[in-house]
Design a protein around this nucleic acid. Structure first.
Ligand SMILES: [Mn+2]
Ligand SMILES: [Mn+2]
Ligand SMILES: [Zn+2]
Ligand SMILES: [Zn+2]
Lengths: 132, 132
DNA sequence: AGGCTCTTTAGAATGATTTTAAACTAGTAA
DNA sequence: TTACTAGTTTAAAATCATTCTAAAGAGCCT
């Protein structure tokens, strides 16, 4: 728990009870995808108390701090990825199933030159899948 | 205008005044990206009258019919692409600039095997860019 | 023209997310 | 310990894109 607080401080975030609780759930090394809603449920299940607004704030702050990554596969609600390393996703829009693609499984042969005056910041590949 | 009506009928859509007006704007061969909001403004500028609900319905119906393509680069609002051919996008999240990447400019060297029981339906590449 | 079905419409409803302003707390200094 | 202050949390209201409603209107076929 002390390590988590330190990690938050390093990220420029004061280690409040709420942030430490969420960090304990999301920054444990497991790779998974959560929504504000799924995280809120998980918190409730554990008997913890964090307000809805704080869940949203924390997810956004963790993302800005690079502790989480936002995944964009649809525009119904936000998805957050505990795996912040470079990787891509399979997404089944029928079931909302979102699965990491191992880092070296998709390879881009070449990248196009960005528009004048711009540089490439990130590359997101989403492979839409469906049940056969 | 007759050709548009025919195109809509072929897509299984009754060519109403509203749908034909929107088709005239979006299905003229130009490649561009619109939102429900930008399209509504454009319609208003032309002195036409189409309700907000119909703009949304029509964009969704055109997309389902394959006349438009939905582009997912963020989750604030929906973007529709008049270019339905296979291609990818540059996206600058600071300016909301969205630019097509020519079809043969991004090449995937190899695709990963989809999860068991699934097949690949589409591949979306979004290259996030920022001003240098 | 008559009739049936599909569409459009204005307005209400929805739902994820953000904003508010007041109550609270971590961190620090006395 | 005891303040003090800036940052944080909270419940509730607000926002905003989008969808829903159910009533009026418009294609289309006979
Ligand atoms: Mn599936
Ligand atoms: Mn730009
Ligand atoms: Zn992931
Ligand atoms: Zn495009």
């Amino acid at each position: 728990m002390r390590a988590l607080a330190e990690q938050l401080r390093l990220a420029g975030l004061r280690p409040t009870r709420q942030r430490v609780a969420i960090a304990a759930l999301l920054l444990d090394g497991r790779h998974r995808h959560v929504t504000a809603d799924s995280l809120t449920e998980e918190i409730a299940t554990l008997g913890l108390q964090v307000s809805c607004g704080t869940v949203y704030n924390t997810l956004n702050q963790f993302t800005d701090a690079g502790l989480l990554r936002r995944v964009t596969v649809h525009n119904n609600y936000s998805l957050f990825d505990t795996n912040t390393e470079y990787h891509h996703h399979f997404y089944d829009e029928k079931t909302n199933e979102l699965v990491d693609i191992p880092n070296n499984d998709v390879i881009l042969k070449k990248l196009p030159n960005p528009p004048d005056g711009h540089e490439i910041k990130a590359v997101d590949v989403v492979i839409h899948i469906q049940r056969k």
